[in-house]
Design a protein around this nucleic acid. Structure first.
Length: 416
DNA sequence: AAACCATGCAACCGCCCAGCT
DNA sequence: GAGCTGGGCGGTTGCATGGTT
């Protein structure tokens, strides 16, 4: 049972606003303000409109300094960066773009920008991609004509597949797709595999997701020849030996996971190796006695997900559980990063930008955020206590986020 | 010229959440 | 603490417009 309507639907006008209505509403608000009560506003103004409709009209159209259309390249980059990082939080994205409304950005994304970004890859590689095997487009069910991921005739008819689950949201899928696209441009080894569908194994999509995530954890997002994220954390913690160990094993892990994609047992081994490396390192870095719990959990999940056949419910539970586990991983990495930054690299307030080590850690955090974005369905994972205040939130103060796509540095490549 | 289709945008719907009582 | 209410948000729809057949 839904809540009672906010107004008498029968007696309110719907549809496009007339110039007269616009003028009336604008004049009233400019003179008296909204009075803090949109529901009561239409009566005061003398409009037969729903209060919510008035609010929407004002915010999206009549409000001063509103810009329509003509998005700049810089705005594109910001929208893309934020969408990848936080998903379809249009109001937050809009807060970063003066004069833009959430509705405008949402429309722009859905009608143009998404096409511009995701469309390119469709020309370059086969439709039957990792992503499409993940995909369970709700949009296409509701409105196939508008769905950018509409299946091509050669797509697998996967409707009966247990893996055609709803484990990932459309938003997450798009973000994953974008991120993988960026990854392709940035990492030649990944690119050679990713751009060659013949090399792709017919494996459980969740395995593919896990392989991808573990690859990302094991590679340096800025420079494939430099230390990986895990190594950077190790180095930052002073664990030089541990970092060297990981470096020695990196090539082996890549070989197992990339050059033998059709060999499930090798994948299994490589996942175990990779997971164990992560677990081992983080255990060694963890300062709390139970810090390894979520890593053990993740590792078990990885092993479990390698079961050849599972039904839809199981696949769903794996996906959810793995998301939860990776969230825990991210939380621990966050903790480690924050603790290190706070304990060892905190800049003096009077010289906030002069501490090189602090900047270094900020970079690590920024990259980590982007690496693990997909595992975070932020809706459910972020505590409400974490404010999305566009001014104060760390997500937006993270310079890396913006410079990524603008400067060509990875965490994003700056290319689309 | 007409029918059809694709696209872009404005507006609506319904849910969630915070604040208030 | 429970219930109510309004504000805010994201998803979706409807329509106008332009392009194609």
């Amino acid at each position: 049972m839904g809540r009672a309507p906010c107004c008498d639907k029968a007696n309110v006008k719907k549809g496009p606003w007339s110039p007269e209505e616009d003028a009336t509403l604008k004049a009233y608000i400019e003179k008296y303000g909204t009075g803090g009560n949109w529901i009561a506003l239409p009566q005061k103004v003398g409009l037969k409109r729903c209060g919510k409709s008035c609010r929407l009209r004002w915010l999206n159209y009549l409000r001063p300094n509103i810009k329509h259309g003509g998005f700049t390249e810089e705005e594109d980059n910001i929208i893309c960066s934020l969408y990848i990082s936080i998903g379809s939080r249009w109001s937050i994205i809009a807060a970063q773009l003066p004069g833009r409304t959430d509705n405008d950005i949402k429309n722009y994304w859905n009608t143009r920008l998404k096409k511009k970004l995701l469309g390119r890859r469709k020309h370059s590689i086969n439709e039957n991609t990792v992503m499409n095997r993940f995909s369970s487009s709700r949009t296409s069910q509701l409105n196939p004509a508008r769905d950018l991921n509409t299946a091509s005739p050669d797509d697998d008819d996967d409707s009966s597949s247990p893996y055609n689950s709803h484990a990932l949201s459309n938003s997450a899928l798009e973000r994953l797709q974008l991120h993988m696209q960026l990854q392709t441009l940035q990492n030649p080894l990944f690119s050679s595999f990713y751009n060659n569908p013949a090399l792709w194994p017919k494996i459980h999509p969740l395995r593919e997701k896990m392989i991808q995530s573990l690859h990302l954890l094991n590679q340096n997002p800025n420079n494939t020849n430099g230390p990986s994220l895990i190594q950077q954390l190790a180095l930052a913690n002073g664990s030089q030996q541990r970092a060297e160990d990981i470096e020695r094993n990196k090539a082996d892990i890549y070989e197992l996971t990339s050059t033998n994609p059709n060999n499930v047992s090798l994948q299994h081994d490589s996942l175990k190796i990779t997971a164990s490396k992560i677990e081992e390192l983080v255990n060694s870095l963890s300062t709390s006695s139970d810090g390894s719990v979520s890593f053990n959990y993740a590792k078990n999940l990885i092993d479990t997900a390698l079961i050849p056949e599972v039904d839809g419910a199981e696949a769903m539970s794996y996906a959810n559980a793995f998301d939860g586990a990776t969230s825990n991983i991210q939380a621990e990495l966050d903790d480690m990063g924050n603790n290190k930054a706070a304990n060892h690299f905190a800049p003096r307030e009077d010289h906030p930008n002069t501490n090189a080590e602090f900047d270094y850690f900020k970079e690590i955090n920024g990259c980590k955020d982007n690496i693990l974005w997909w595992s975070n369905e932020l809706d459910t994972k972020l505590p409400s206590a974490i404010s999305w205040d566009p001014v104060n939130n760390s997500v937006f103060q993270n310079e890396g986020l913006f410079q990524d796509y603008g400067s060509g540095a990875i965490c994003g490549s700056g290319q689309y």
